[in-house]
């Protein structure tokens, strides 16, 4: 029958439209305010309106989310070395980087002239970075991590899009906030490694 396709098509659209109001009626204002309702609205059981009202509400990104990398430094209240970068400038991240967007200048001790395990300069060209996450994955010191901040659009790239050490560093507490489980796992792994090392040293 001609026209049936149109009626069926309009039917599903109307059903979808009406469902939003049915849900609103059933759940009231809580549908938009209560924390757990967001999961329901954006999950498999979603009924009716599926839209995220960005920027008023944003989907929180998962812990493994990858965007531009950042360098982990000690928190400001660290007892021994506040603000000390974890990076030892071993260069593994710049070697694994598939598009080669990481530049590192290794520090040298001014007296002995020997290399020091910390970066003097560290650059990432975010116009080349492909967010693959290899740098974070293969860093043996947990010193480089993928940031979750995706709201970084800008008006100018010539000055703003090569990130330097200052722009790249973020404290450990930030990493703990954006990826609590992973930070905890890494801490346990590091402690186990330290313990094993100490055990070995004793022997």
């Amino acid at each position: 029958m001609y026209g049936l396709g149109i009626i069926k098509g309009l039917g599903i659209t109307i059903k979808h439209f009406a469902n939003t109001y049915v849900e609103d009626f059933k759940q009231g204002i809580k549908r938009y305010t209560a924390e757990d309702r967001f999961t329901a609205r954006q999950g498999l059981e979603a009924q009716g309106l599926f839209t995220v009202q960005y920027p008023e509400e944003k989907i929180a990104v998962p812990e493994r989310f990858r965007y531009i990398p950042f360098l982990v430094v000690n928190d400001d209240d660290h007892p021994d070395a506040p603000g000390q970068p974890w990076c030892t400038s071993c260069g593994i991240c710049s070697k694994v980087c598939p598009p080669q967007c990481i530049w590192i200048v290794r520090s040298t001790d001014p007296e002995t002239g020997r290399p020091k395990p910390e970066p003097q300069e560290f650059y990432i060209d975010i116009d080349i970075c492909m967010n693959c996450g290899y740098c974070a994955e293969f860093c043996p010191f947990d010193a480089i991590k993928m940031d979750h901040d995706y709201e970084i659009s800008s008006y100018d790239r010539t000055s703003a899009h090569i990130y330097d050490l200052q722009k790249l560093t973020k404290p450990l507490s930030y990493w703990r906030t954006i990826a609590p489980t992973r930070a905890e796992e890494e801490r346990t792994a590091r402690e186990a490694k330290e313990a094993a090392k100490a055990e070995k040293a004793k022997k």
């Binding site: 960005y54 929180a60 990826a179």
Partner: peptide, 18 residues
């Protein structure tokens, strides 16, 4: 991963937990 979703960090972030 144990669950789908992530912690709310930014202003306006809504966490999901599935």
């Amino acid at each position: 991963p144990p669950y789908i979703g992530g912690p709310a960090v930014k202003p306006g972030d809504k966490a999901r937990h599935m």
